[in-house]
């Protein structure tokens, strides 16, 4: 009898111990909401000039017969979505990415998306107007990355620089720093891209889906509006020329292939 009563003696202690352990457990490991299964989605940007791969320093020819080379090519991407087979937009990432030909790692975005069948990918080129008026930013939007105008607040949405014998500029340079988030000179562009065969593609947790997206520098000179280096060697502020360049770069992207493995 004596032995049993001494066990009872420790009962309140044991109960409290159990309670504390449980409450700890609940806070840390019970999932209240189960997120939808996601599959890996990789987006690979392939920079080209027409059919040739872009390589810094190599010479290319635009549609106006102007020879040029490139030494800087970068652009912001954000708000990546997929369009489901039912036509719904499904958010993949709201982060900002600075895709830079000079930094190969920046050309591959490793993301995840809810499982499903999708008909198209949608994303926005540039930095949305709110982030242009919200003060000091960090990460991909850090002003030290050289995509920020300090004297006329705003982000450079996309940048293309090089040399061309056609350029009347200093050292025959041409340089397009395209930005502007205020009407009528808005350079933020949302694009929707369809797979090459317009067939739906799958995102599954069992597979890795890779979207290879081509970005064609040639589009900057001629996709929508003719831009000749001889007439327009530089764009360094929001305005008419920047808007035309944006109307052109809007068309530089296309899905070259989709791989699921």
């Amino acid at each position: 009898m004596k032995g049993l009563s001494s066990y009872f003696f420790y009962l309140p202690y044991g109960a409290c111990l159990a309670f504390l352990l449980l409450s700890c457990n609940r806070e840390n490991s019970i999932e209240w909401e189960r997120p939808a299964d996601r599959g890996e989605l990789k987006i690979v940007f392939q920079h080209v000039v027409k059919d040739a791969p872009l390589s810094f320093g190599d010479e290319y020819l635009n549609d106006w017969g102007e020879r040029y080379n490139v030494h800087s090519f970068k652009y912001y991407i954000h708000d990546i979505q997929l369009i489901s087979a039912e036509g719904d937009a499904v958010s993949v990432s709201s982060d900002y990415f600075l895709v830079d030909e000079g930094l190969p790692a920046s050309k591959q975005l490793e993301l995840s998306a809810p499982e499903g069948l999708y008909n198209a990918i949608v994303y926005t080129i540039g930095v949305d107007s709110a982030r242009n008026v919200s003060g000091a930013q960090t990460g991909a939007l850090d002003p030290t990355l050289g995509m920020f105008w300090t004297w006329n607040t705003g982000y450079v949405m996309a940048k293309l620089e090089g040399h061309s014998p056609a350029s009347p500029g200093v050292n025959q340079e041409f340089s397009y720093h395209v930005g502007g988030f205020k009407w009528p000179y808005i350079t933020i562009k949302q694009v929707m891209l369809l797979p090459p065969d317009t067939q739906a593609f799958e995102v599954s947790k069992k597979k890795l889906s890779t979207l290879n997206i081509r970005a064609d520098v040639n589009a900057w000179f001629s996709y929508h509006i003719p831009i000749r280096i001889a007439e327009n060697p530089a764009s360094h502020a929001p305005g008419e020329l920047a808007k035309k360049l944006a109307d052109n770069y809007e068309g530089m992207f296309s899905v070259s292939s989709i791989k699921t493995e």
Partner: peptide, 25 residues
């Protein structure tokens, strides 16, 4: 009125070549 937010104003004089002429990095 070129600067639309007080937080980013210092970037202008800091980087202007005729003012503080420095790079943020």
């Amino acid at each position: 009125g070129g600067i639309n937010h007080i937080e980013v104003q210092p970037l202008a004089p800091i980087t202007a070549p005729n003012e503080m002429a420095e790079d943020i990095g």
